[in-house]
């Protein structure tokens, strides 16, 4: 449960922060950050989920990104990618 809450906070907080900072970045930098952040989150979640002592937390992070993508229909990430691509 903690992983889900932290995951949602990170996803929404990170997305909001990215939008706030993206206008100050160059196009290539925004593009790179916009693509790297979700991949970093996913990779980090899997790495935590595989370790015995952080398994539940990592699973929560995975559930959070899945739920966020499904429920919000990818709108947030879509905007993030779009901004990164055209920024």
């Amino acid at each position: 449960m903690l992983g889900i809450v932290v995951g949602l906070v990170v996803l929404f907080g990170g997305g909001w922060l990215f939008f706030a900072l993206a206008e100050y970045m160059r196009g290539e930098a925004a593009n790179f950050v916009g693509l790297a952040l979700p991949l970093l989150y996913l990779g980090g979640s899997i790495a935590l989920a595989v370790r015995d002592d952080t398994r539940r937390f990592g699973s929560g992070l995975l559930l959070a990104i899945g739920a966020a993508l499904i429920i919000l229909a990818g709108v947030c990430f879509g905007l993030l990618f779009m901004l990164a691509g055209h920024g």
Binding site: S45, A49, R55, L62, G66, A68, I70
Partner: peptide
Amino acid sequence: DDRLWVLAGMAVAFGALGAR
């Protein structure tokens, strides 16, 4: 077994990514 939660997380995350 907590690994079942990992499988659920992977299913939801990759399902969401795969759908798009």
